[in-house]
Computed example of a mutant assay.
Amino acid sequence: MLHEMVEFFLLCVTSLFMVINPLSVTPIFTSMTSQFDRTTSRRVARKATVTAAIILVLFAVTGQFVFKVFSISVDSLRIVGGVIFFIMGYEMVQARLSKIRFDKDNLHEMESYTQDISITPIAIPLIAGPGAIASVIILMSSNSSIEYQLVLFLSVALVSLVTYICLVFATPIMDRLGESGNKVLLRIMGLIVMVIGVEFFVGGLTPIVRRILVIEG
């Protein structure tokens, strides 16, 4: 029993780590928070990773039920995530992702902006994306035992902690690039994010088109 739970734990951690890929999230996060000081960046990272963990746990518990009630498929979630990623990437390519210049007179706007990006798009769909959501739903349905479900929740927490550490330690490195370096990185990552968005969109649309063709055929 213990051996099987250890194997399931390793499966959960490996699957979530590969799908979330904290190393790929890091440069996008640092580009989006380039105007923030270190304390604010850490606060955004903390809220984003905690929010993503909560979202994954909620989908693990209620995902199958919600998808059935609203007739939602993971493919549809991929399409929506792809659209969000493409728009975000376009904004990054234009080097205008941070539309507010922060100073002492508009701290309220800065707080509002950090709240917005920590939830969308960093928490979802950047960290808790369609792949991660689909993974926790599948892993949750693979075994109904309470012990295995707790192992899954522990795995989500562990991967979220690793993601937070990656985000926090990447910020000092980005500080050394300066404003010009951050703008260059912002445009480069914008192109990558747009490509990710297209991949998400095509990956979600292809199975839907195939099902339509099978039905019509």
Results as ranks from 00 to 15, higher is better:
Met1Ala: 15
Met1Cys: 12
Val6Cys: 02
Phe8Arg: 06
Leu11His: 08
Leu16Val: 09
Phe17Val: 08
Leu23Val: 15
Thr26Leu: 13
Pro27Val: 12
Thr30Glu: 03
Ser34Cys: 11
Phe36Glu: 04
Thr39Ile: 12
Ser41Lys: 10
Thr51Asn: 02
Ala52Lys: 02
Ala53His: 04
Leu56Ala: 06
Phe59Thr: 04
Thr62Tyr: 07
Gln64Phe: 04
Ile72Glu: 01
Ile72Thr: 01
Ser73Trp: 04
Gly81Lys: 07
Phe85Arg: 01
Phe86Lys: 03
Gly89Cys: 05
Ala95Asn: 14
Lys99Asn: 07
Lys99Cys: 02
Lys99Val: 10
Arg101Gly: 08
Phe102Ala: 08
Asp105Glu: 14
Asp105Lys: 09
His108Phe: 11
Glu111His: 07
Thr120Ala: 11
Thr120Asp: 10
Pro121Trp: 04
Ile122Trp: 02
Ala123Met: 08
Leu126Gln: 05
Leu126Lys: 03
Gly131Ile: 07
Ala132Leu: 08
Ile133Val: 14
Ala134Trp: 05
Ala134Ile: 08
Met140Arg: 07
Ser145Gln: 09
Glu147Ser: 13
Glu147Met: 11
Leu161Arg: 00
Leu167Gly: 00
Val168Ser: 03
Ala170Met: 09
Ala170Lys: 00
Thr171Met: 09
Ile173Leu: 15
Arg176Gly: 10
Ser180Tyr: 11
Gly181Glu: 10
Gly181Ser: 07
Lys183Phe: 14
Lys183Asn: 14
Gly190Thr: 06
Val193Phe: 05
Met194Gln: 05
Ile196Thr: 12
Gly197Cys: 14
Glu199Val: 15
Gly204His: 08
Ile208Ser: 04
Val209Asn: 01
Val209Leu: 15
Val214Gln: 05
Ile215His: 10
